[in-house]
Simulated scan of single mutants.
Amino acid sequence: MTTQHPPVQNATGTMPPGADPAGDPLAAEPVVAGRSPARIAWNRIRRDKVTLVAFVVTVLFIVIALLAPVLTALTGWGPITPDGRAINPDTGNFPRGSLGGISAHHLLGVEPGTGYDLFARVVHGLRTSLLVGFASAVLSTVVGVVAGLAAGYSGGWVDSVLSRVMDVMLAFPQLLFIIALTPVIQNALQTNSHGGTDENLRLLVLVLNIAVFAWAYTARLVRGQVLSLREREFVDAARIMSAGRAHILFRQLLPNLWAPILISFALAVPQNITTEAALSYLGVGVVPPNPDWGSLLSDASQYFLQDPMYLFIPGVLLLVLVLALNLLGDGVRDALDPRAART
């Protein structure tokens, strides 16, 4: 009489080669692997074709912006390098040829009046727009997260004061106040030999002005989440173990807020890019001849009837960029929604 031994599994929980699973009813069941929330969110994004296309387009724009000096060096034209032969003085310095002077030498044509290569100005303007959009979004998100954590967890007079400040900031007509404040601050910070403001300093002022009026949105969102999380058992356990306030805020509460913070950041970037373009269009952002999409649109509006491509190209690119960022933000929000089906 022989003794039947149960099948032996290896360290991974699977049957070794040649083993007979008939004697073990659990051997045929598949091994269920746990997935992190980030992995689940990424799987949802990959299945959402619209979000995936928006992600690819956004990455493409970012890569083009990072490689702008390389791309313009390959074409041989800088953003403020005029080509007098590409414009015709007999027609008011409009581009020679059709479609705004598009040719093998100028991939997107040239600017009327100046002869600047439009491709070089577009890719360098993209760097400016993305820099201002992402930098202001990062700054406003950091300030909003800290303020929201402090207001939601502290309560009492701290919450009351910060909440009233948020209400005041949300009530401001953001664009109007930025238009009023930006030139005042820039004129007070004249740093170059021509009595103007250094371009990097102008961008810094622009980033700060946009972030000052944008942080309250993130703060209000974070405060609402913290008000719910601070009553959870893991926070009570941290208090019982004599954990400090900083530990509870940044080690217990903050890791549970990354989803709404990421959503807020993803939606803030396109809004800030649009704001920056609007400010440059109105003449209080990036100053010509430095490239920027808003200033390009402002200049192109004067030549629309004679050279529509000058307005069409940067206008469509700005639309595609902002649309891709908005769709990506919506997709990230849906992917991180805990109420959605776990697929």
Rank of each mutant, 00 (worst) to 15 (best):
T2V: 09
Q4V: 13
H5L: 12
Q9S: 08
A11Q: 13
T14L: 14
M15H: 07
G18M: 08
G23H: 11
L26F: 09
P30K: 12
V31K: 13
V32M: 05
G34P: 02
R35D: 12
I40G: 05
N43M: 08
R47W: 10
K49H: 12
K49Q: 08
V50Y: 10
L52K: 03
V56S: 01
T58W: 05
T58Q: 11
T58P: 04
V59Y: 06
F61A: 01
I64P: 01
I64M: 13
V70E: 00
L71I: 03
T72Q: 00
A73P: 03
G78Q: 00
I80Q: 10
T81Y: 10
R85D: 06
N88Q: 02
N88G: 01
F94G: 02
F94T: 15
S98C: 05
L99C: 10
L99G: 12
G101T: 04
I102H: 04
I102M: 15
L108G: 08
G113R: 06
T114E: 00
Y116D: 00
D117P: 00
L118W: 04
F119E: 00
F119G: 06
A120T: 01
H124P: 02
R127M: 07
R127L: 11
T128W: 13
L130Y: 02
A135S: 09
V138M: 12
L139Y: 13
L139A: 09
V143P: 05
V143M: 14
G144W: 13
V146I: 15
W157A: 14
S163P: 07
S163Y: 03
V165S: 12
Q174G: 15
V184H: 03
Q186S: 14
Q186D: 05
N187G: 10
A188N: 01
Q190T: 06
N192K: 02
N192F: 01
S193V: 05
S193Y: 08
H194K: 15
T197L: 04
V212E: 09
A214M: 09
Y217P: 10
T218H: 14
R220I: 03
R220N: 12
R220V: 11
L221G: 10
R223L: 01
G224E: 11
G224I: 09
L227R: 06
L227S: 11
R230W: 10
R230Y: 00
D236Y: 09
D236M: 12
D236Q: 13
G244S: 02
L253G: 13
N256R: 10
P260G: 04
I261R: 09
L262V: 04
P270G: 00
I273C: 04
T274A: 13
G283I: 02
P288Y: 06
P289E: 01
W293G: 02
W293R: 00
G294F: 01
S295E: 02
S295P: 05
Q302R: 10
Y303I: 02
Y303A: 14
Y303L: 01
L305D: 07
P308C: 10
Y310I: 08
G315A: 09
V316G: 05
L325C: 05
N326I: 04
N326Q: 11
N326W: 11
G329P: 00
D330F: 14
V332I: 15
R333T: 01
R339H: 15
T343I: 13
T343Q: 04
